[in-house]
Design a binder for these strands. Sequence first.
DNA 1: CTAAAGCTTTCCATGATGGTAAGGTCAAGA
DNA 2: TCTTGACCTTACCATCATGGAAAGCTTTAG
Lengths: 132, 132
Amino acid sequence: MMNIGEASSASGVSPKMVRYYESIGLLQQVRRSDNGYRLYSGDNVQTLIFIRRARRLGFSVPQIEHLVQLWQNPERTSAEVREVAQHHIQELQDKILELEKMKQLLEGLISQCHGDDKPDCPILEDLSRRDL
Amino acid sequence: MMNIGEASSASGVSPKMVRYYESIGLLQQVRRSDNGYRLYSGDNVQTLIFIRRARRLGFSVPQIEHLVQLWQNPERTSAEVREVAQHHIQELQDKILELEKMKQLLEGLISQCHGDDKPDCPILEDLSRRDL
DNA sequence: CTAAAGCTTTCCATGATGGTAAGGTCAAGA
DNA sequence: TCTTGACCTTACCATCATGGAAAGCTTTAG
């Protein structure tokens, strides 16, 4: 058993976030020692590592809650896991397309802008256009 | 001169956000009528339209503050405007790459997952890996 | 005159994270 | 033994742009 600092460095999750995950129920409440310090087991650290890796892949906390539940359930099917991941990929793709669209519009505007010391600028002209 | 509702529908910015933009100084404080209602001119609406279009392109409020300032300054140079836009494009690109990376990693995992009714799942195995 | 619509301000919530502050605990060294 | 520093605790605030709700005032239409 270890204190939060050790669990933090072993998992790569900041102590702050470890407490946060516990407060929202993503991590089950851990035992406390007599002085009130949280005590973490190797299993707890393993869960923190899982959470961290999922966050790095962009999964939201509710999604990770689902994944952890599947992970800890020996009755799960890989189809369920795949479904969660597939859904997240779609979300990523939607965001990517949205950003790409913005970027392309901006690139079009920039290409028309001289970028010199005169005030005339197609970018500003476009932004102030009333129509859609 | 018009009330906030009319300025809102003329610009496409919600009344809520119109007040917010004013509160943070992005929109200059507008005149009030005797009853305390905000009064908007055509110029104010024009600024709201500008803000809305810039938001749609993903510019942050501070960036829009800068753009509005350039827009209203006849001494501006198009190079300055271009610089702001170019910087934002870079931000968009950075985010896109980050999301693409997540997506690619996930796609790799999904392709290895059978997605059947058995519990074995490379996605969960990867998420629980201790190493980096 | 009344009801509805529109305006006002203030407070709360989002999501995941970091910071700060005020205080308790513990271990090591003088 | 005392002190110092590192570590822990909770509670509160901030982010960023947006929406919602409440409570109350004004204007307009019927």
